[in-house]
């Protein structure tokens, strides 16, 4: 198993599994409503800040914050 890392450190085309969302529960809840949640496979399409990822069949533009990040476990292809 690979190490956990923040979502925005994935390289272009890399697949990963979202492990957990770290941050204030209100913000976590909002992101979960958009489909960004634990247990979901994610693919990095355009790295950088912000980055573009694919989750399920949607593209999301994402930028984390000082007290918020999405931790992923790389290597799990969807």
């Amino acid at each position: 198993m690979e190490e956990l890392l923040p979502l925005n450190l994935l390289v272009r085309g890399q697949h990963a599994l979202i492990e957990h969302l770290v941050g204030q529960s209100e913000q976590v809840h909002r992101l979960e409503e958009l489909g960004l949640r634990a247990g979901v496979p994610v693919e990095m399409l355009e790295p950088g800040i912000p980055c573009i990822v694919r989750i399920a069949d949607q593209k999301l533009c994402f930028r984390d914050a000082d007290l918020f990040s999405v931790m992923v476990r790389p290597g799990v292809a969807s």
Partner: peptide, 10 residues
């Protein structure tokens, strides 16, 4: 105040 995370659907 702290910047919130930013998510937007494309």
């Amino acid at each position: 105040g702290a910047t919130p995370p930013f998510v937007m659907e494309l």
